[in-house]
């Protein structure tokens, strides 16, 4: 028999849940509902009158090529960052797992970037890659490569990709390391005896056994790149040059805050919200079913 703590009154459990519910309602549901409502309104430029227009903001949005450009930018950005951060952190975790003795110092160093605020990370990378003064820019220039993220869209993209990847590696590393350590040592030893080279051992045993972790991280990383990179982009490129690094989240901010198009901006956030809900749903379904062995 399972032992359970039971509450006598009917009120107490609800009272205990209340703070959590309040936080969720005030900081999530309320703004979400507001955003949905807002996305059905069009405001004139001076904010004097508003009009309820149903889906006009959405149709307007989908008629603009900029929106699809931003969507494409986001997809490129997120897949590159997810791929890089996952593969680099997996590589680091495999190395740490081999020499677990020295791992503690190594781990601490790798975890620090995670504690850095996105905007600060952005500024850090901005300084290093600042075209005229940045340390790294100077180094690149001595190699004979003309580096200028302020003018060249690809360079700007590379810069935000690096900053975003760097920040995400710590988190992935921790999960990969934990995943690696939960693989029984004897299974790896059995495959060594079965004649598999270290590389083959990794691809046929370790990597498949890590797949639940990898899948989880993939979704988390995509969500991260979609939303949490706002600070980095704002601090380094501001979405430029020529909107080369304007991701969907940055566009919400740019159109709403700077462009004054509250309705259009709200419509964009609602679309983003739907995307996250979709990703999370996929994650729950798969983590529970498919990816297990």
């Amino acid at each position: 028999m399972e032992k359970r703590v039971t509450f006598d009154g009917k009120l107490l459990p609800y009272a205990l849940l209340l703070p959590q519910l309040l936080v969720t309602i005030i900081f999530f549901y309320w703004p979400a509902i507001q955003a949905v409502y807002q996305s059905f309104l069009i405001q004139d430029a001076f904010g004097l009158s508003t009009q309820f227009v149903w889906f006009e903001n959405y149709t307007l949005l989908f008629s603009k090529p900029e929106y699809f450009h931003s969507l494409l930018t986001t997809l490129v950005f997120s897949s590159v960052v997810a791929f890089l951060s996952l593969s680099i952190s997996l590589l680091l975790a495999v190395q740490a797992d081999k020499h677990i003795k020295f791992a503690s110092g190594y781990k601490t160093l790798l975890i620090w970037p995670y504690a850095v605020a996105p905007a600060v990370a952005g500024v850090l990378w901005l300084f290093m890659f600042q075209p005229s003064l940045g340390l790294v820019s100077q180094a690149i220039r001595t190699l004979g490569f003309e580096w200028n993220p302020l003018l060249d869209g690809n360079h700007a993209m590379a810069l935000v990709v690096m900053a975003a990847t760097w920040k995400q590696i710590s988190y992935n590393f921790l999960f990969f390391l934990a995943g690696l350590q939960s693989i029984p040592k004897s299974v790896i030893e059995a495959s060594a005896i079965d004649g598999a080279s270290p590389l083959r051992r990794f691809w046929t045993i370790t990597f498949p056994l890590l797949s639940p972790t990898t899948f989880y991280l993939l979704v988390v990383n995509i969500v991260y790149v979609f939303f949490d990179t706002f600070g980095i982009i704002d601090a380094t490129t501001g979405g430029g040059p020529a909107k080369a690094t304007e991701t969907l989240v940055y566009k919400v901010f740019h159109d709403g805050r700077l462009g004054g198009d509250l309705g259009g901006s709200a419509a964009q956030s609602v679309i983003l919200m739907v995307m996250v809900i979709g990703l999370t749903a996929i994650q729950f379904r798969f983590v529970e079913k498919k990816v297990q062995y």
């Binding site: 299974v187 030893e189 005896i193």
Partner: peptide
């Protein structure tokens, strides 16, 4: 181990899950 041409049965079997 792979070059020694041996086979081993482990206590926990160590099958590939």
């Amino acid at each position: 181990p792979s070059e020694r041409d041996i086979a081993m049965v482990f206590q926990n079997y160590a099958l590939y899950p």
